[in-house]
Nucleic acid binder design. Structure first.
Lengths: 139, 139
DNA sequence: TATTGTTATACTCTATAACTATA
DNA sequence: TATAGTTATAGAGTATAACAATA
């Protein structure tokens, strides 16, 4: 009896392999901006003008809330983010980008979203298929 | 004038999004075996019976060689890996798995390569396309 | 001289536990 | 009592620089 989805495991193995092959670039990329990979991640999570509660950052990073304190301390010391007290619930502190932070975020994202050469080498039709499949994957 | 590969950036954005959505699971997965994500990575890089020079680990991890010393110290203290002096070049120390390490590696890999549900939900033909494209990507 | 791995040092990331202020 | 964030503490990952042994 054949399994119903014989290619699932292979697809996952290939994705992992691709993931690991790209992973090595992230620290160097972050370092270009004097950021750690996690700091990049945090910057990415805050869209300008849309403050995010600190607890939500911890949740998305899947880390303890206490880490976010130090993480934000460092970003705030560099003038990239601001802590805002929430009106509704005064326990909550929401993070917003400073103008400097918003500019840096834009540059970092621009740099991060530059596709690797391997992707550019795919044919247009392969790229279209990949986009279609990834959209389904992320639903 | 249209760019030649209009879907490249979108494909990359989607891949990044997928990576980040999966990334959060790795620390928890590693923790199931009392390993850090990087320790998992190192275990993964050593195939049983095929010793790997420490320098090659540093290279693959894209980190400084000095980190590998401590990393391996901890794995060795747990009886998972062994340092072997190379015959040809006595400066080189090659890493090999102990029987315990080889067993743990197998279990970790088995667990890591279990595809996420989102992948299983793709149709067989979508999975075949994905595999084909990823193979090209990794060439 | 150059290279492999180690040591010393400093900083960041991470978790746990105890704490403060608010709900 | 419960929750959001902080502080204190400890362990692990990371880089730089100086070092030993070997090439």
């Amino acid at each position: 009896m054949k399994p119903r989805t014989p290619h699932t495991c292979e697809a996952w193995e290939l994705l992992l392999k691709f993931f690991f092959s790209q992973r090595a670039d992230l620290p160097a990329l972050a370092a270009e901006f004097d950021l750690s990979p996690v700091q990049c991640h945090v910057l990415r999570l805050i869209e300008p003008g849309q403050p995010v509660p600190m607890g939500r950052i911890a949740e998305t990073l899947a880390c303890d809330a206490s880490n976010v304190t130090g993480l934000v301390d460092r970003l705030e010391a560099r003038g990239l983010v601001r802590r805002q007290l929430s009106e509704e619930d005064r326990r909550v502190k929401a993070l917003d980008l400073t103008p400097t932070g918003a500019r840096l975020r834009a540059v970092v994202l621009e740099r991060m979203t530059k596709p690797p050469d391997s992707l550019s080498r795919l044919s247009p039709s392969e790229q279209r298929s990949l986009v279609r499949i990834l959209r389904r994957l992320l639903d």
